[in-house]
């Protein structure tokens, strides 16, 4: 389907797992927790168990990385995770199988695939979208797909009910935020710092002011990630975001215990639980505080 032929698909829609998850979080006044791991790391046979462990540790949805040979937006931790996964031939089709297997035990937790465009295009967008839907994937975040290039590519994904999540960055201008929000469905992922995944220069104050600008442009839920390494940073960002994404901190844990995979589910679960507890101890009234998003949408006109 081409953009502009009168039929515009919107991805998962209001009754999707993803929308329901964010609606529930909003109703409960809670901040969502989104862990990221790279599929196939340290070995593909552990991935499904690790996904379940993440849910047990308090994940509201799971971002599963699709290994790519040239992950140019990722820091060394996730690069090495990709190399470990590719060493055991974890490619897109294997990742889809893992999601299907995860779904047999967990029909509720949304799963987002995060990766780069080339493996997806190689499978074929339409083919990928159908297989992803059949496997129980809820959405896709393609790191190197800019909003400008999206209108030619995402309709094929949205047509199968997949949400397309886009990144926002500290460098995104207001016109770009509007453009990106228009292409996105499900949620928006705000990259909290100028850098690659796992960097250590998080500036909470600047995230706060940028998020206010983003809120003025969109009603989509906003997840914040890059640089979230512990319960403290998670809580700091959790005060202003709808969800917090934690990736490299978990992948570092996998790397640390890769030779003892039996302990990995417990380690990951515990690590995530500390963040979950920190987020849940945030005052529920934060949503009504003047520096947070009001419950009623902000008017779009500026």
């Amino acid at each position: 389907m081409k953009a502009g032929d009168g039929r515009r698909e919107t991805g998962g829609g209001k009754n999707s797992r993803l929308s329901m998850t964010f609606a529930r979080l909003r109703a409960q006044g809670r901040t969502g927790l989104i862990p990221y791991i790279t599929a196939g790391d340290p070995h593909p046979r552990h991935t499904v168990a690790l996904m379940h462990a993440l849910v047990e540790g308090g994940a509201d949805l799971v971002e599963l990385g699709v290994p790519f040979s040239d992950p140019m937006a990722d820091g060394p931790v996730i690069q090495r995770a990709c190399e470990r996964a590719l060493a055991h031939d974890t490619h897109l089709r294997q990742v889809l199988d893992q999601v299907a297997q995860f779904r047999r035990r967990d029909p509720h937790t949304p799963v987002i695939l995060m990766g780069y465009l080339n493996p997806i295009e190689t499978m074929g967008l339409g083919d990928f979208a159908r297989r992803a839907r059949d496997s129980g994937v809820d959405g896709v975040l393609i790191v190197d797909l800019a909003a400008e290039e999206a209108p030619e590519l995402t309709p094929a994904l949205k047509a199968e009910g997949l949400d397309c999540i886009f990144l926002l960055a500290p460098t995104s201008t207001v016109p770009r935020i509007r453009l990106i929000a228009g292409e996105s469905s499900g949620y928006l992922y705000y990259v909290s710092l100028k850098g690659v995944t796992g960097a250590r220069t998080l500036d909470v104050a600047s995230v706060k002011s940028r998020l206010a600008e983003v809120r003025a442009c969109t009603e989509l839920p906003i997840a914040v990630g890059f640089g979230v390494r512990d319960a403290k940073t998670a809580a700091a960002l959790g005060r202003m975001a709808d969800a917090v994404v934690v990736g490299s901190a978990l992948v570092s844990e996998i790397e640390k215990f890769k030779s003892r995979p039996a302990v990995l589910p417990r380690k990951l679960s515990a690590k995530l639980r500390s963040m979950r507890n920190a987020l849940d101890s945030l005052p529920a009234s934060r949503l009504a505080s003047p520096d947070s998003r009001p419950l009623t949408p902000v008017p779009r006109s500026l």
Binding site: D144, E148, L168, T171
Partner: peptide
């Protein structure tokens, strides 16, 4: 051609 990069680089 085109511009296929992470969002942070789009404005630069």
């Amino acid at each position: 051609g085109g511009r296929f990069v992470a969002e942070t680089l789009m404005e630069p």
